[in-house]
Every structure is written in structure tokens, then in C-alpha cells.
Simulated assay, not measured.
Amino acid sequence: MDLHFQGQSHLIASYLIRHEGGVMLVETGPGSTIGGLELELGRRGLRPGDVTHALLTHVHLDHAGAAGWLAQQGAHIYVHPNGAPHLVDPTKLLSSAERIYGDDMDRLWGECLPVPEAQITTLDDGDEIAAGGVAVVALETPGHAEHHLAYQLDDICFTGDVGGVRMPHSGVVVPPMPPPELDPERWRRSLKHIEAQRPEYLAPTHFGLFLDPAEHLAALRRGLRAAEQWVEAEAPEAESAAALQERYTAWLRRWAQEEQGLDAEDWARHEAINPSWMSALGLRRYWKKRHGG
């Protein structure tokens, strides 16, 4: 379901899985897209109260910001153990986001309500969520975030952000790399874990269902490697974080458009949901940790 984040298509998806007693969702989207979520459910003859399970890949606001609201409607929330405390008390999560987004917080993400602890189930690798004849398996997949899960339903893998960002009808996959938990080595191990499930379809939250998992993951690996090589060359020379952000944005645009073939309209969508300035900060933090700075 396209939640039409900020009035634009193909930015944030929530995936609906029907079962005999209602529906599961993979991702709730942010609080700012609750209206879009209600609209998309209504188009399918459903109400928010029909959502019995909400499966979160991780607790970043674009993926999980509406979890508290859905819990109020009766949904049970599923998340990695390290993400659960931020759902019960989102104070730290929101404070961190406010430092980044400032006055744009409400416009971008809307209200983020706490989730009652009794309505949260934490998931480890291989745990199964079963309801009404449907079974989904959780896959621990860190690299983008320490508390990241992917979900396997039959031959579909819902990859959250560890599957990268890709626009429909495009073959270009860009890794989203915000601070503070970027770890490319763990990310690559997570991609191997996904491959081991032998999915025929990949469904990243940003955005859509793709039928070429081998090509998709190869493109994502190219993006990870290119970004690592870039920061190793550029971080020692950057006089400030702002300078590094400016250089990274210019480099990523050239890499994506000139080397990988991304078109200009898709670049704008990538920037709207996976801003290069934020990935530059994640890369900078990763580089400093790696070099003891």
C-alpha cells in the first residue's frame, strides 16, 4: 500500500497480508501518513481495527511512527528486542530525530505515540508469527540498524531498509546509511542471510515488489562498496561534517545518475526518503569509529 508520504508516490510502503482473522501489516509508516493508511485500508474494505499484527522492520520513524496509533486500534506490535524499549517510551527516539529535523518534525513524521508493553512481542532470528493460516518468519538483519528485521512470507522477503532504496521500474539500488548504527560488514552478512532463504521476490519499504532478487542484491552491494570507498578517500580531507555532506551529495548524484543510470525524477524521490546528507553523517560516524576517531 502506497502511503503517499508528503503527498508523493513510491516513497513509503506498508505491506498488507490477509489472514482468516484479519490482516497483518509489515510497516506502519509514520504518524504523518495515518490518513493515507486509513484510506488504503478502506479501499480494500478494511478498517484500522482489522489490523491484528503490525510487523516492524525497525523503529525509525518512517517505518514505525504510527505503531502506537495502531496499537490504540487493537493491533499487536512485533519488533526486534533492541527496538522494543523505544516503542514503549519513544522519548529518546524523538529527541534524536528532533536534533536532526528541527522544525520539520511534525510536518515529516506527525505524532508518535507510545505502545503499551503488553501489546509488544519481540522477535529473534527464525521466530515465526502465525495467524489464521499465515506464517511469517523473522530474519535478524543488522547493518542499516542494529535492531533490524526482515520478514519472509513464502517466497517473498520484506526487506525494510537492509534491502536498500529502489524506485519502481528502476534497477538502481541505493543503500540508506543514517547514523548511528551503520555497519557495512554486518549489512553484507545480512544480505547473505536473505539470500539463504531463496526468495523469489524482494519487497523493500522504499519501494515496491521486485522480481529480480539476485540483480537487486548485487546492485545494493555495489552501492555499499562504492560508498565505503568514497568515505575512505574523502573523510580524511573533509574540514567539517557540512563539507562532507556537500561532497557526498554531489558524488552520489553523479554515481547514481551517470554511472548507474538513475533518472532525474527518481533522484528527487531518493532524496525525499533517503537524503544523501543523512547518509553522509552515517558514513562519517562509521569512518570515525573504524579509525578510532
Rank of each mutant, 00 (worst) to 15 (best):
G65R: 05
P81F: 03
S14F: 05
L39S: 15
G36R: 14
V79N: 01
A75P: 09
P30H: 00
G65A: 01
Y78I: 05
G22L: 09
G68D: 02
A71R: 03
P30G: 07
G68E: 04
A71G: 00
R47L: 13
A75N: 03
E40M: 12
R47W: 11
R18M: 02
G65Y: 04
Y15I: 01
D62R: 10
R18D: 01
Q73N: 07
S32F: 12
G22W: 07
P81Y: 06
H76P: 02
G74N: 04
E40V: 09
H58M: 03
I12S: 09
L25G: 05
I17N: 08
H63K: 00
Q73D: 00
A64E: 01
I12W: 05
A13K: 10
R18Y: 01
M24E: 11
L37W: 05
A67Y: 12
H60I: 13
A54E: 07
L56K: 01
A67L: 10
P48N: 11
V26G: 03
L41Q: 12
G31H: 11
P48I: 10
G36T: 10
G21K: 12
A75Y: 05
H58T: 03
V51A: 01
P48W: 07
L16P: 01
T33G: 02
T52I: 12
V26K: 08
V51K: 03
T28A: 15
D62E: 13
I77T: 04
G36W: 09
L41T: 10
I77Y: 03
P48D: 08
Y15E: 06
S14I: 04
N82I: 07
E38I: 13
T57I: 08
A71F: 03
H53P: 00
I77E: 07
H58Q: 13
E40W: 02
P30I: 02
I34T: 14
V26E: 11
T28N: 06
D62Y: 08
E27W: 05
G29Y: 01
Q73T: 04
G49I: 03
I17Q: 10
G21Y: 04
H19R: 10
Y15P: 03
A66Y: 02
